[in-house]
Lab assay of single mutants.
Amino acid sequence: MGMPNRKYADGEVVMGRWPGSVLYYEVQVTSYDDASHLYTVKYKDGTELALKESDIRLQS
């Protein structure tokens, strides 16, 4: 078993793309699913969504 190939840690605050949009919002990573390679993130309004790594970026 190798290390999970994840870029962002639980609790890390990053920018997540809103689905169907080009806009990124501040989100907190809450979990990562090794099987689906999706991150569960929480937006400031409390919305929780699963995002692909390509829809997440570090805060500038």
Score class of each variant (00 low, 15 high):
1 M>A: 15
1 M>F: 04
1 M>V: 15
1 M>G: 15
1 M>P: 15
2 G>E: 14
2 G>K: 03
2 G>R: 02
2 G>N: 07
3 M>W: 12
3 M>Q: 15
3 M>D: 13
3 M>L: 13
3 M>S: 15
4 P>F: 09
4 P>S: 10
4 P>L: 12
4 P>M: 10
5 N>K: 07
5 N>Q: 13
5 N>V: 13
5 N>Y: 11
5 N>F: 10
6 R>Q: 08
6 R>P: 04
6 R>L: 02
7 K>L: 12
7 K>E: 04
7 K>G: 03
8 Y>K: 00
8 Y>Q: 01
8 Y>A: 02
8 Y>F: 12
8 Y>E: 01
9 A>T: 08
9 A>S: 10
9 A>I: 07
10 D>E: 06
10 D>Q: 07
10 D>I: 13
11 G>L: 05
12 E>P: 01
12 E>V: 08
12 E>R: 05
13 V>P: 03
13 V>L: 12
14 V>K: 01
14 V>I: 04
14 V>Y: 03
14 V>W: 01
14 V>Q: 01
14 V>T: 02
15 M>Y: 13
16 G>K: 01
17 R>M: 06
17 R>Q: 05
17 R>E: 01
17 R>N: 03
18 W>C: 10
18 W>Y: 08
19 P>S: 04
19 P>A: 06
19 P>T: 04
19 P>K: 06
20 G>F: 07
20 G>L: 06
21 S>L: 04
21 S>Q: 09
21 S>I: 03
21 S>F: 04
22 V>H: 14
22 V>N: 15
22 V>I: 12
22 V>G: 13
22 V>L: 14
22 V>Q: 14
23 L>N: 10
24 Y>I: 02
24 Y>G: 01
25 Y>A: 07
25 Y>C: 12
26 E>S: 09
26 E>K: 11
26 E>D: 05
26 E>Y: 10
26 E>C: 12
26 E>L: 13
26 E>V: 13
27 V>I: 05
27 V>Q: 00
27 V>P: 00
27 V>Y: 06
27 V>M: 13
27 V>N: 00
28 Q>V: 15
28 Q>G: 02
28 Q>Y: 10
28 Q>A: 07
28 Q>N: 05
29 V>Q: 00
29 V>E: 00
29 V>N: 00
29 V>G: 00
30 T>G: 04
30 T>K: 13
30 T>I: 15
30 T>Y: 08
31 S>H: 11
31 S>C: 06
31 S>T: 07
31 S>A: 12
31 S>Q: 07
32 Y>A: 00
32 Y>K: 01
33 D>V: 03
33 D>L: 04
34 D>C: 09
34 D>Y: 11
35 A>H: 11
35 A>F: 11
35 A>N: 12
35 A>S: 11
35 A>W: 10
35 A>C: 10
35 A>V: 14
36 S>G: 06
36 S>W: 06
36 S>P: 01
36 S>A: 10
36 S>L: 11
36 S>F: 07
37 H>P: 01
37 H>K: 14
37 H>I: 03
37 H>E: 15
38 L>C: 08
38 L>R: 08
38 L>G: 02
38 L>M: 13
39 Y>S: 00
39 Y>N: 00
39 Y>G: 00
40 T>G: 05
40 T>N: 08
40 T>A: 06
40 T>D: 02
40 T>Q: 09
40 T>E: 03
40 T>K: 10
41 V>L: 05
41 V>I: 03
41 V>F: 01
41 V>N: 00
41 V>H: 01
41 V>E: 01
41 V>W: 01
41 V>D: 00
42 K>V: 13
42 K>Y: 07
43 Y>D: 08
43 Y>K: 07
44 K>T: 08
44 K>R: 11
44 K>H: 11
45 D>S: 05
45 D>Q: 03
45 D>M: 03
45 D>H: 04
46 G>W: 03
46 G>I: 03
46 G>Y: 03
46 G>C: 06
46 G>A: 04
47 T>D: 03
47 T>Q: 09
47 T>E: 04
47 T>V: 08
47 T>P: 05
48 E>M: 14
48 E>D: 05
48 E>H: 10
48 E>Y: 14
49 L>Q: 07
49 L>Y: 15
49 L>K: 07
49 L>R: 09
49 L>S: 06
49 L>A: 09
50 A>M: 14
50 A>L: 15
51 L>F: 02
51 L>Q: 02
51 L>E: 00
52 K>V: 09
52 K>N: 10
52 K>T: 12
53 E>N: 04
53 E>H: 05
53 E>P: 06
53 E>V: 05
53 E>S: 05
54 S>W: 08
54 S>M: 09
54 S>I: 09
54 S>T: 12
55 D>A: 06
55 D>Y: 05
55 D>M: 06
56 I>N: 01
56 I>R: 01
56 I>P: 02
56 I>Y: 00
57 R>K: 13
57 R>F: 11
57 R>C: 12
58 L>F: 10
58 L>R: 15
58 L>D: 12
59 Q>L: 15
59 Q>H: 14
59 Q>K: 15
59 Q>Y: 14
59 Q>D: 11
59 Q>T: 13
59 Q>N: 13
60 S>K: 10
60 S>V: 12
60 S>N: 12
